[in-house]
Design a binder for these strands. Structure first.
Length: 293
DNA sequence: GCCCAGGTGAAGC
DNA sequence: GCTTCACATGGG
């Protein structure tokens, strides 16, 4: 096929906005109905259409497999949703988040981003990621006249920096974690090798890294490696499980993990993303209602 | 000023 | 094993 800068993907049941804005990835910006972001070294702009997604890139592309893979165009969403438990909370979440998908991201970018995510709001994670990309990422091709754009910095690049330089990117106490992890990866830890492991083994390898606990590890397992059983429990998912499944009884984290494993089926990670997004939507609406008063 | 954010690691029971 | 606390920074 001839190299081209545009391409159309046919896709049913795909809510691009919900997917790119649901706290999985931190580099997407909405402008004039188009989502603009960076995947590896590609500047990309995406537009939702009735039949699917129209993509534009900064440089001509011959093989579009990388984008199809990132967006998980081929995932059978109706089939996945049918495996969710048939209970009231999931019915509500599915109704509220129709077309929400899981992306398949680059392991290093996902790992580094989620090390920066701890105890931070999504807007702020975006901001920190933006700063490290501008300062330490390679410049990439953008359409004529566009503002400069940068790849996510490699582990090798970040490994050369000082802790002070990272702190200057507003990441606070996360700086030493990111720096140490970058140095371990730059020194030869093979992130690709985790693809061939079991969830448990892969999780152990990730949790051995500084700044990576159960929650960050599960995010990377789910959003980068496609382990559909990984079930990240952050404050929102904690709230969802507490309020929707265990009202008026405080349940400990360990128990919630066990509940999640047995209750949500083979695509529990997907179910988790629906609960997460559902809770955030509900919160936004709640605030909007309140400000009207 | 206050509380909270896609938490983790270390210290103290 | 568990619970508590410090850790930067900015949004609401």
């Amino acid at each position: 096929m001839n190299p081209s800068r545009t391409r159309t993907f046919r896709a049913q049941d795909y809510d691009l906005g919900a997917t790119l804005d649901s706290g999985q990835a931190f580099r997407w910006v909405l402008r004039d109905h188009q989502w603009t972001g960076v995947i590896a070294t590609h500047w990309v702009s995406l537009l939702q259409t009735p039949d699917g997604i129209e993509a534009e890139t900064g440089a001509p592309v011959e093989d579009w497999t990388w984008l199809e893979h990132y967006l998980q165009i081929g995932a059978d969403l109706p089939k996945i949703v049918r495996t969710f438990p048939d209970d009231e909370p999931m019915r509500q979440a599915v109704a509220a988040c129709r077309g929400l998908r899981l992306l398949r991201q680059d392991p290093w970018e996902c790992l580094a981003s989620f090390i920066l995510s701890s105890s931070k709001q999504i807007v702020q994670i975006r901001q920190i990621v933006g700063v490290i990309c501008e300062r330490y990422g390679e410049s990439i091709a953008v359409p004529g006249g566009g503002t400069p754009s940068f790849a996510f910095p490699t582990a090798q690049r970040l490994a050369q920096l000082s802790e002070a330089e990272l702190r200057a990117c507003k990441m606070g106490f996360r700086a030493p974690y990111l720096l140490e992890t970058a140095r371990i990866v730059a020194a030869g830890m093979d992130l690709e090798a985790l693809h061939g492991k079991t969830v448990g083994e892969a999780r152990q390898s990730l949790m051995a890294l500084p700044g990576v606990g159960r929650k960050v590890a599960d995010c990377v397992l789910l959003f980068a490696y496609g382990f559909q059983q990984a079930f990240p429990v952050d404050v929102w998912v904690m709230k969802a499980l507490q309020q929707l499944y265990f009202p008026r009884r405080r349940v400990k984290l360990k128990r919630l993990h066990r509940f999640a494993e047995s209750h949500f089926g083979p695509y529990s990670g997907y179910a988790q993303q629906y609960l997460f997004h559902f809770m955030r939507l509900r919160d936004k609406r709640g605030l909007a209602e309140e400000s009207k008063k």
